[in-house]
Amino acid sequence: MRILFAKLLVAVTGLLIVVLAILFAVLRSPTDDAHLAAPEQVTQTTPEAGVVAPTTKDANSQAPQAATIARGRAVYAEQRCRVCHSIEGEGNTRSPLDGVGGRLTEREIRRWIVAPQDMNPAVAKRGYQLSEEDLNALVAYLTASSRR
């Protein structure tokens, strides 16, 4: 009977913890309405945001640019950026990168990758040591994502 009582106590406690964890998650995840109202999410869809950051390389030649972007996509995958970031809803939606090229300059994106604490000392993100070529490709890929 005492064991039964203890088991009951455990069951009640365990259930309460799970319920409160669910409650926590619900409270933290705003509803869809609030989500749409978030200013950050709105700006990324405005067309002008895409044009704000046109790059010089952009207009030059389309073929090498496509190859660089493809390389950038590969680097993005290799470095497993999507563990913390998402593009078009794929990956971790906590920190979406959609339209980042519209919000940040190339230089800022580069700093965010190499030395994130320069951009925001409180951020819990490590700096990535990439070859110059890979870094350029990744930045190109992310910049290009602003147009999608």
């Binding site: 799970v18 409160l20 964890a21 669910i22 926590f24 998650a25 619900v26 933290r28 995840s29 705003p30 989500h35 978030a38 950050e40 971790n92 939606t93 906590r94 920190s95 979406p96």
Partner: peptide, 16 residues
């Protein structure tokens, strides 16, 4: 907390 929306399952898992 000032984080952006990460989705119910993400937050639930973190809470657990």
């Amino acid at each position: 907390t000032t984080d952006t929306n990460a989705g119910f399952w993400w937050d639930f898992a973190i809470a657990l």
